[in-house]
Simulated scan of single mutants.
Amino acid sequence: MTVSYTRLGAPGSATVTTKSAEDGDGSLLGITILEQPSAPFDVDIQVEDVGGPSAGLMLTLGILDLVGDDDLTGGAIVAGTGTIDADGNVGPIGGITLKMVAAAEIDAELFLVPAGNCEEALGVAEPDFPLARVATLEDALDALADFEAGRTPEPC
């Protein structure tokens, strides 16, 4: 039997051998469908100098900025950190104070802080940029939208 399918947007076909039906006339044909998301573009990000999961949030935002229709930062220099899981939850990281120093050195205008690191981040001398508290990817996107619109993102 010939079975037609679509894979990555392209039609195709395959010849499949059926099995005799045990209970009745005819044949049996089993099909397993694997739905796997795909995109009509490639994303190539150079991460050779990234050591560890703490760049997860910023890499995610960078990818969304590259493939989306909106400029997430409006040209502002935005720094941040945080792990991210498959559900979009942002986790705390180590060394937040050092990352804030690095953000100051690049003249960051906003710093996205994992909610679990807010207390430690607030212990640093008054930074030259606002600290936006983010617990999820949605929080980070909201903070960026607020910042670009001239509103204050939810602070630590």
Rank of each mutant, 00 (worst) to 15 (best):
G30L: 08
Q36H: 01
G75V: 06
A102Y: 05
I106K: 14
G82V: 08
G95D: 01
G12T: 09
T83A: 09
E148A: 15
D142F: 03
R7W: 09
V16F: 07
G74V: 12
L141M: 14
D128T: 12
L57H: 05
P11E: 14
I96T: 09
V47G: 01
I93Y: 00
G12A: 07
T2P: 00
A104M: 03
T97S: 06
A125T: 12
G123H: 06
D44E: 12
D139N: 13
N89T: 13
T32L: 00
D146P: 02
N117T: 05
Q46P: 01
M58I: 15
G68Y: 10
E120M: 02
T18V: 11
T97L: 14
S27Y: 13
G88Q: 07
G80N: 02
T2S: 05
R133Y: 00
I45S: 08
G30T: 13
L57W: 03
V50W: 03
S54A: 11
L110A: 05
G9K: 12
V50G: 00
G150P: 06
L137H: 03
P153T: 10
F41E: 04
G24D: 04
P153H: 10
K99N: 06
R7F: 13
G80T: 03
E105H: 08
P153R: 11
D49A: 15
A145G: 05
T136Y: 00
G88M: 05
G62I: 13
D44V: 15
D49N: 15
L112C: 07
L57G: 06
P37R: 10
M1G: 12
T2A: 06
G150Y: 04
L64S: 08
R133K: 15
V50C: 03
T60N: 03
T73E: 03
D23W: 07
D107R: 05
Y5A: 14
V134W: 01
G95Q: 02
D107P: 00
R7H: 12
L137R: 06
I106D: 01
A140F: 07
I96Q: 04
A140T: 11
L28F: 01
V113T: 13
I96H: 05
L61Q: 09
L29S: 10
L72Q: 04
T83R: 07
L141A: 12
P153W: 12
I93M: 01
L131E: 02
L110G: 02
R133F: 00
T15I: 04
S20I: 09
P155D: 04
S13A: 12
E35N: 11
E22V: 14
L57N: 05
V16P: 02
K19Y: 06
L57I: 08
A104N: 04
G75I: 09
L57E: 04
D49L: 09
Q36V: 15
E105P: 02
D142I: 12
A86R: 12
L8V: 11
L112V: 09
T32E: 08
Q46V: 13
D23G: 08
L144Q: 08
D71Q: 04
A121G: 11
G74D: 10
T83Y: 00
A115E: 13
A10W: 02
V47M: 02
M1A: 15
I63T: 15
A103W: 04
F41D: 01
V78D: 02
T60Q: 05
D49G: 08
A115Y: 02
E105V: 07
V78Q: 06
G95M: 02
G116I: 07
P11T: 14
P130R: 08
G12R: 07
N89P: 00
F111Y: 09
V134E: 04
L72R: 11
D139T: 09
I63Q: 07
M100V: 10
